[in-house]
Design a protein around this nucleic acid. Structure first.
Lengths: 187, 187
DNA sequence: ACGGATGTGTGACCTACATCACTTTCGAAA
DNA sequence: TTTCGAAAGTGATGTAGGTCACACATCCGT
C-alpha cells in the first residue's frame, strides 16, 4: 500500500478527519527510505522525530555497558517507533532504532506533532489513543516478564506476532525476551 | 490539600483550563474514601472508572495461579490508578487495586472521560500527556528489568520514590521488583 | 497482658538461566 | 563449486535468585 493510504487507514480507525484535515496532517510527514542495517536513531543523537513504518521492519533497542542488546520493540508496518523518552524530554537518545530489513517510513517531528495536535482535536485524540495502546501493551509485557518463564514468553510472542518468525533471527528474539541466544536455542 | 485543589494543580501543569472549564471537568468526578486493605477493583469486576489519588496510597497488582502477587504500580497522591486494559477494552479486571493505607480518591468513569475529552480539547491534551509519561516510565522499568539485578533495581526504586520506604512493607517492595521477599531481605 | 495474625530475617538446598567454548548449518559472494 | 562469515545448536560449568523451613519480632484486637 502507498504510504499516504497506509497512514490514512491507520488513523481512520480511531479519529474522524475530513480529507482536507488528513491532507493537512499528512503534509507534515516526510517520507524516507532506509536500508537493512541502517540506523535511524543512535545513542547520543538529538531526537526530534518519530517514525511511522510503511514497509519493512525496524527495531528499537538499548545497548548496556557490557554491549548486550535489549530490544524494546519491533516495528512492523503501521507501527510507530522512536526514543520516546528522549523525544518528549528533549534529552539525548539512549535508545537506538535501526532497520532489520529495507524500510520505508514516514517521519514526523515532535514540534509538528504538537502543532497538529493543537490544531486538530481529532489528531490529539488519535495520539492519546495510540499511546494508551502502547501503555497497556508495555504493562502486559512487564507482567509477563515477572510471571512467566522464557519458554512461555517465547510462545506468547510468536502467537502474538507470527510474522516475526520469518523476519527476524533468533538472536533478536532472544534480545527481545531478555535471555541469551543459547538459552533460547535450547527452547 | 483539598481534593479539588489537588486535581486542579495537577492538571494545570500540562493543560490550560479556565476556571469554568475546570469546574465542568471536576463535576464529573466522584469523591470516595476507602480504608486500608479495601479493594477498589478486584479481578473479575467490570471496570468502568479510573481513580485519582488525593490522599493515601494504593497499589495495582496481579495475582497469578500460584497466588503469587506482582505489583504493577504504587499510587501516591496525584497519581492515577485503574486496570487500564480492562477499562479501555471493556473486559473484566485481571488487575486488582487496593489500599495500602486509608485513602481518598476522585473517581472518573471511562464514559465521562471520553465525553470531557471530546468536549474540551485541553482535557484530551492532558490525558495524552499523562499516558505518555506512563508509557515512557513503563518502558524504562522494562529495560531496568532486563538489564539490572535486584539490588540495583531496589536502590533505584528507593531513590525514585523515597516515600515508599516508610509507607509500604518489604514484602510489597519485593512484589514490585518481581523477586521473593527472602531475596530482598538478603539485600 | 495475652494470643494470633502478619511481617521480617536466615539457613539449606534447588533450578533456571548465563557464560564460555566449541561445533554445525546455511546462505551469499567469488 | 568452493569458501567464508554469520546464525544456530550444544556441552560443561557457574551463579542469582527461588523455595521451603523455621525463628523472631511486631502489631492489634479482645
Amino acid at each position: 500500500m502507498e504510504a499516504k493510504e497506509s497512514l490514512k487507514t491507520h488513523i481512520a480507525k480511531t479519529a474522524s478527519l475530513t480529507d482536507d484535515e488528513f491532507d493537512h496532517f499528512f503534509s507534515h510527514f516526510k517520507s524516507r527510505r532506509f536500508q537493512k542495517g541502517q540506523f535511524i536513531i543512535s545513542g547520543g543523537d538529538i531526537v526530534d522525530s518519530e517514525y511511522f513504518v510503511v514497509a519493512g521492519c525496524l527495531k528499537s533497542f538499548f545497548i548496556n555497558d557490557d554491549m548486550k542488546m535489549f530490544i524494546l520493540q519491533f516495528a512492523m508496518p503501521t507501527w510507530w517507533a522512536s526514543d520516546y523518552n528522549a523525544l518528549y524530554n528533549h534529552t539525548k537518545a539512549t535508545i537506538n532504532v535501526d532497520c532489520i530489513t529495507d524500510a520505508e517510513v514516514l517521519c514526523l517531528s515532535n514540534d509538528d506533532r504538537e502543532k497538529i495536535c493543537s490544531e486538530l482535536h481529532q489528531v490529539e485524540h488519535f495520539f492519546r489513543w495510540r499511546t494508551n495502546k502502547g501503555y497497556v501493551a508495555a504493562q502486559k509485557r512487564l507482567l509477563s516478564f515477572m510471571n512467566n518463564n522464557v519458554k512461555y514468553r517465547y510462545e506468547e510472542l510468536l502467537k502474538l506476532y507470527p510474522e516475526l518468525h520469518d523476519t527476524v533471527g533468533k538472536n533478536l528474539i532472544a534480545a527481545y525476551l531478555g535471555v541469551s541466544r543459547e538459552t533460547l536455542s535450547r527452547l
